[in-house]
Amino acid sequence: MAQTMEQSYQKLARGYLQKSLCQQEQLTVYNLIIEDPTFRSILKEEVTILQQMRQIKPQLPKALKQKIRRDLAGCYPPPVNLAAEIFTLVLQYTMPLLVSPLINLQRRVFQ
C-alpha cells in the first residue's frame, strides 16, 4: 500500500479514536470498517498502541496536585468582581443622599 494511503488511514483511525472527526469523515470511517480489511487492521493497531501508550502516562499524586494549587493561590490575589465592587461603592455614597428625597416622596404619595 502506498505510504500516503497508509498515512491517511492512520490519520482517520486516530481521529476516530480521538473523536475529532467531522460527520463526513466519520461516515468514511464507518464505510471503511465495513468494506476494507486493511483499514480494520490499521484501526486495531491504533487501538493497541493507544492502550499501551496510555499505560505509561505518569499519574499526578493528589497530595502534589493540592500542594501546587495552594502554592499557586499564594502567588496571585483572589479574583475581584469589579462590577460588584463599584456598585457597593456607589450605593455606600448615594444611599444617604437618597433617604431624604425618598421620605418626601413617600409623604407626598400617601398624603
Binding site: K57, P58, L60, L64, K65
Partner: peptide, 15 residues
C-alpha cells in the same frame, strides 16, 4: 482549568 489540565501538564513534564 487547573483541575482539568494539571494532570496532563504534570504527566508531560514527568515523562
Amino acid at each position: 482549568i487547573y483541575e482539568c489540565y494539571a494532570d496532563s501538564v504534570y504527566a508531560y513534564l514527568k515523562f
